[in-house]
Design a protein around this nucleic acid. Structure first.
Length: 406
RNA sequence: GCAGGGGUGGUCGAGUGGUUAAUGGCACCGGGCUGUAAACCCGGCGGGCUAACGCCCUACGUAGGUUCAAAUCCUACCCCCUGCACCA
């Protein structure tokens, strides 16, 4: 690949590259000297559950690896002390060495589904922050002015709106920036929410007489709700460790409009192909449903396998298209005998309360052995040899077997 | 400590003595439709009891009080937020 081709490849999907000329220069230098670029990505030490949103940036790391560069996956075990830079949550609890190590292992297991382990370095910023000392920290702080820090949108806004802004939060960008100095990073990746922090790294590196890193800013992926960014706490995420059938269902539940975004940011599909599919869907030549199935399969293939993807599709069709029962149904045991239907639903946790169970039944959401039961006072015979199949809604199935008391 | 603002159901946010289990949005759940767990439409959304009409309990920061009646008024307390504090 020529440098121009490499640039174009790396540019795909980015929101911004600051500055592209710098990246070009670094790529040229790397090619000339045969030294791979050091590409940094910071990670939160407390939340090692990776979801599709995180993979947007990880995919970009992989692009750098494909071009022969080194990825530094930095676990911010020190920065974690400072807490969520969005100011929503307080300081996080200090993790023990064991917990950090465990989280790092969890990270590895997940990121290596996308990244090449041989070209990846896992590091921790406590390695240099722990030995910095308070005097070192103060000296570090002398390189940045208050005004520079307050340029951050989020900070400025909170001050303007009289919302709290704790001092330690202001230090967050500083530590992150220093990580880039310590690592001598050539490139740092991050979502748009990290732009300020990454730029701070550029400034600080210059202060330390280093060449400034290039900022590669990726978009934030919307969650399954299509509105807010994907996050675990909002419950709109697709975790990469989720079982294939779960992933399939979640992908199928995104809106048709959002599907293009996922194609672009979560698969290797080229922009041209996406445009073609989009046009086909619009003209009616393709069924959006089929395109969404394809999307789901591509995503599942990345984190599981093509076989798993096919199985998940088959399962989905069976349950939702043909309205048959799933392949595997969990079985629960209850005391044998006659059960009032609502009581039974609560007993096996298909409903959280009697009131809720009644509602489900009255609304026609409950089936017993495939037959709708809308009578709240229905009774069900549960014996040791007959285990009725209970279905609540479209997707929750349970077989209930009786167990006689001794 | 002082001054001001605020604490309501999963969440946001109305309500300032009485059809208020508490408007509305979001989230969530069920149904319909379909090409999908899309979109759209309809319904539900504290809990217990009842076949059902319905009855009862719990809930608006905490604890008391006033009243026939309080999320709404009074008292005390707790918590959160913003500002003030020095140089005088």
């Amino acid at each position: 690949m020529t440098i121009d081709e490499q640039l174009a490849y790396l540019r795909k999907g980015t929101v911004e590259i600051i500055r592209e000329e710098d990246l070009r220069a670094k790529l040229e230098k790397s090619a000339r000297t045969g030294t791979p670029l050091r590409v940094k990505l910071g990670a939160d030490p407390t939340a090692p559950d990776i979801h599709l949103g995180h993979t947007v940036v990880i995919r970009k790391l992989r692009a750098f690896q494909e071009l022969g560069h080194t990825v530094i996956f930095l676990i911010g075990d020190f920065t974690g002390l400072i807490g969520d830079p969005s100011g929503k949550s307080a300081t996080r609890p200090q993790l023990t060495r064991e917990e950090i190590a465990a989280n790092a292992e969890t990270y590895k297991a997940q990121i290596f589904k996308l990244l090449d382990p041989d070209q990846t370095v896992i590091d921790f910023n406590s390695r240099w922050m722990d030995t910095l000392g308070s005097d070192g920290f103060v000296r570090l702080a002398s390189h940045v002015t208050v005004k520079q820090i307050l340029e951050r949108d989020d900070f400025a806004k909170r001050l303007a709106e009289n919302r709290p802004l704790a001092l330690h939060e202001v230090l967050y960008p500083l530590v992150m920036a220093y990580d880039s100095v310590a690592l001598e990073a050539d490139v740092e990746l991050g979502g748009t929410d990290q732009k300020f922090n990454i730029l701070m790294g550029r400034n600080l590196q210059r202060e330390y007489a280093q060449e400034a890193q290039v900022a590669v800013i990726m978009p934030l992926l919307e969650g399954t709700d299509g509105v807010q960014k994907m996050s675990k706490s909002l419950g709109n995420y697709i975790g990469i460790n989720e079982p294939p059938s779960e992933m399939f269902g979640k992908v199928m539940s995104i809106s048709d409009e959002l599907m293009w975004r996922y194609y672009e940011l979560c698969t290797d599909t080229s922009l041209e192909e996406i445009e073609r599919m989009r046009a086909a869907a619009k003209s009616g030549a393709s069924n959006p449903r089929d395109l969404k199935v394809e999307l789901a399969k591509r995503i599942i293939t990345d984190f599981h396998s093509a076989t798993d993807a096919r199985a998940a599709e088959e399962e989905f069709n069976r349950v939702f298209k043909r309205k048959e029962t799933p392949d595997e149904i969990e079985e629960r045991t209850v005391t044998a005998g006659r059960w009032k239907l609502p009581r039974l639903l609560v007993e096996v946790s298909l409903a959280p309360s009697m009131a809720e169970a009644r509602r489900l039944i009255e609304q026609g959401g409950v089936r017993l052995d495939g037959e709708q039961r809308s009578q709240v006072n229905d009774e069900v015979e549960v014996t040791t040899d007959h285990a009725p199949l209970i279905q609540v809604g479209k997707r929750r199935f349970l077989r209930v077997r009786g167990q006689s008391l001794e």
